[in-house]
Amino acid sequence: MPIIEVRDLRKVYNGSVAALKGISFDVEEGEIFGFLGPNGAGKTTTVHILCTLITPTGGLAKVCGFDVVKEPDKVRRKIGFVPQDISVDDDLTARENLELHAKLYHMPRSLREKRIEEMLELVGLQERADSLVKTFSGGMRRRLEIAEGLLHSPEVLFLDEPTIGLDPASRMTIWEQLRELNKEGVTVFLTTHYMDEADRLCDRVAIIDLGEIRAIGRPSELKEEVGGDVLILKTNNPDKLLEKLLSLPFVNSATSQDGTLRITVKSGEKAIPLIFEEARSLGVNIEAVSLSKPTLDDVFVRHTGKSLRDEKIDMIERFKQYMLMKRRRR
């Protein structure tokens, strides 16, 4: 039985804005499942429905076998939630934040202290445990947020944009921690607009845009669908080689332009030596070769007709403004 089950889930805001137009997917136990899409695609809406924060307009959503609308309290006991906007309490210390969380989840006192130490160690915040959170960097806050999400040993951890606005080193740390925890059996559901994050971290990815799931599968499979790796060859006799290449079974497509050949193949690493062999037998010289792998962005372009890259700046800008506002708070 899948641990998250979503069928034809719909959400309409204010009677007119359709945020989700009927999405369906399953997440299996022990997976790292990613929702990849731009701002406003419906990622946060999905997470909020699954975390019982908002009620869907229609459709069905089950987490750990419990309906999120009918049995929200049972769902709440099973899940951890790391929201997009960092929401650990600035005016408490890291430890106090965790203590409050533990109490709200009815953890017995004996277990509480042990678990808090474990979590602080997991996210590498032991030394700063008794400092006020307002003195923390963005990465530290995010790590504390994750520690909180995990404190009560949830079966599923939901993370909404877990590495937004973080520097590369902090992102790597968080990825490692998520993998570590996934090994211990926690199912991870995350949303992201970073394709590298979806690619490197997730077992399976759903591409979502404008409230609809456009594609779903393993990152490697999705990329293969794009048409495979791209090889660029420079040669002294492109026409002769092109003709031969088009007859080879492993070549998906090949075009020639200004003496440069652009070839798509299933696996570039395997294709290169074979192409070289063919070229030698034809007596054609290959002067240069480059191999590029398709990214999830190519997948995204294929399914939605637009690129994710343009989105990034918007999101980071928004995050920075949020942090500024937060500092001005008191």
């Binding site: 975390c51 019982t52 309290d73 899940i79 997009q84 929401s87 969380h101 989840y105 937060k326 708070r329």
Partner: peptide
């Protein structure tokens, strides 16, 4: 600042 959501997600 989202803390409210955190309270709402808790089983209380």
């Amino acid at each position: 600042f989202g803390f409210f959501n955190k309270l709402l997600v808790a089983p209380i």
